[in-house]
Design a protein around this nucleic acid. Structure first.
Length: 275
DNA sequence: ATATTCCCCTGGAAGC
DNA sequence: TGCTTCCAGGGGAATA
């Protein structure tokens, strides 16, 4: 997926199409995407009135309607939203289609069907649903500090990269930006989280923020599936230092980039620049 | 409590 | 050309 920068990009692109609009109809082309996809509860949210807000929390999007009704949206690994005029020919793997009252449609396209669409109630207007309460702080917010990360990592034996991708520690950092963050910080992703110094934590916080901000600026990273809602690609790929560069020379020191597997996911790092 | 492993699904690329 | 294997931006449940 869609890590934080991609979700942020999608969210920003969709907002002008949806704010203040009524969603008049939803069509489910699959019985189930991931989780509960109940047409009756989706309609209940949509029928509450026009869209009040669309915001990102972690890698989720919250589409808010009046009276604390909301749709919780997640793109999974391969989900994408498109806005197009009603009647436009269906793309392959179109899973859910919403009719908007301006003649356009919001369409969820997702080959792998890991995406999530669920009607939820918010604790407060502008808030989040209970099912997101386990999530850690936003990486671009004030709660994500060196001190926080240092405290959270004490006595943790899990590899530091796995730790940073743990959404209960800090949200939004996925497989690509984790590798990039560790490269930028000069830290081996295999190091036990509990062995990170306060200085390491400061570097990780600073660099994860920088990487995410840069990626947002470029509209995210397109590898295969990910596209912005207007169909264009994210432009951050050319800025990747290690991700997807196994055996290619490190951009700093020319040492071949190494790929290892951590909890089933690929990790890329430079054996010279990162210790 | 924390740390791995497996699974959800489909398609593209690489290997034989 | 065609078959097989591996791999993929996530995350949750089930195991150790």
């Amino acid at each position: 997926m869609p890590e934080l920068p991609e979700v942020q990009t999608v969210c920003s692109a969709l907002r002008p199409h949806l704010l203040g609009r009524n969603l008049t109809k939803v069509t489910l082309n699959v019985p189930k995407v991931r989780n509960v996809l109940n047409k009756r509860t989706l309609n209940r949210a949509m029928d509450a009135g026009p869209v009040q807000d669309l915001r990102r929390r972690a890698k989720y999007m919250i589409l808010e309607f009046p009276e604390r009704h909301a749709l919780l949206l997640h793109l999974g690994m391969s989900g994408a939203f498109r806005i197009c005029p009603a009647g436009t020919e269906a793309a392959k793997h179109e899973r859910v289609v919403w009719d908007i009252d301006d003649g356009n449609q919001l369409r969820l396209i997702d080959p792998r069907r890991f995406s999530q669409v669920e009607a939820v109630r918010l604790a407060l207007p502008g808030g989040e649903p209970d099912c997101l309460s386990h999530l850690g702080p936003e990486p671009l917010g004030d709660l994500y500090t060196a001190g926080y990360l240092f405290q959270a990592s004490r006595k943790r034996k899990t590899p530091a990269k796995v730790f940073l991708m743990d959404q209960t520690v800090v949200v939004g950092i996925g497989n690509i930006y984790a590798s990039e963050t560790f490269f930028k910080s000069g830290i081996r992703p295999t190091r036990a989280a509990g062995r990170l110094t306060r200085k390491d934590c400061a570097a990780l916080v600073k660099n994860s923020r920088a990487v995410l901000r840069q990626a947002i600026k470029r509209g995210g990273t397109t590898l295969n599936d990910y596209h912005q809602p207007d169909g264009s690609e994210g432009k951050f790929r050319i800025h990747l230092h290690v991700y997807g560069r196994e055996d290619l020379p490190c951009r700093k020191c020319k040492t071949p980039v190494k790929r290892i597997t951590q909890t089933g996911r690929s990790t890329f790092y430079c054996p010279t620049c990162q210790s």
